[in-house]
Simulated scan of single mutants.
Amino acid sequence: MDIGGTESMVAGALLSGLVLAAIAMLAQRRVGWVAAWSWCGLLWWLVVIALVTLVPLYGIDLAVPAETRSETCSLDYGGPAPEGFWILSGGQRLLNTALFVPAGALLVVAVSRWRVGWIAAPLGLIGLAAYSLMIELVQLELARIDRACDVTDLVDNVTGAVIGFGLGLVVALVLRPWKRR
């Protein structure tokens, strides 16, 4: 059975998006539309990140054993990743950074409804960094998905989350979810 490819990524994103949109519609009456949609948006984006980073780019047969497996993550800053990538020009580093921007922004908007958001937002940012680290470790362990564990990816992902965090502060000030119900 072949698994992978952009079709799998898109199908997973669409299916999870539909499920989380339904949940947001149900939750918005209880917590307000900003909180409901930002929480479900954050969860959806975390699923999208997992799909983009852990689903093989091309269909692979999981029954084939991985002959070569790296024992450690690449600590070579700049990493083994190619300069170009098939989705957008600008290199894989730009894509790794951009991938985490929405998560950082949605995190801030999601938690800003409650007073505990001042504590939850920075902790959530640490959680996004841990999520990125977990993805890199999964890539290291699962050589069959044809992905590389790389410290550069971790740095770029965290940079994107921090940029998103800053954007989320601005969006939260505009939407003011603490005033909505």
Rank of each mutant, 00 (worst) to 15 (best):
L54G: 01
V138P: 02
E71L: 13
I49M: 07
P102A: 10
A110S: 10
M134D: 09
G90M: 10
L133D: 08
M134N: 11
I87E: 15
R144M: 13
A105L: 05
V64G: 06
P122M: 09
R30N: 13
V48M: 11
P80N: 12
R144I: 15
V116M: 15
V138D: 03
Y131D: 06
L57N: 15
R147Q: 10
I145C: 11
G41V: 00
Q139I: 07
W45I: 04
F100Q: 06
A103N: 02
L125V: 05
A121P: 01
A105H: 00
F85H: 11
G79K: 01
A105R: 00
L123R: 01
L42V: 02
V116K: 11
G117V: 02
N96R: 06
A143L: 07
L107F: 02
R113P: 00
G84Y: 14
S89A: 12
E136P: 05
A129G: 15
L75D: 09
A129M: 14
I145G: 10
E67W: 08
D76I: 10
G91C: 02
L107K: 01
T72F: 15
L43S: 13
R147V: 08
Q92V: 14
A98C: 11
V55L: 11
I145Q: 07
D76F: 09
L42I: 03
Q139E: 11
L62P: 12
L137P: 03
I60T: 09
V116S: 14
N96P: 03
L123S: 05
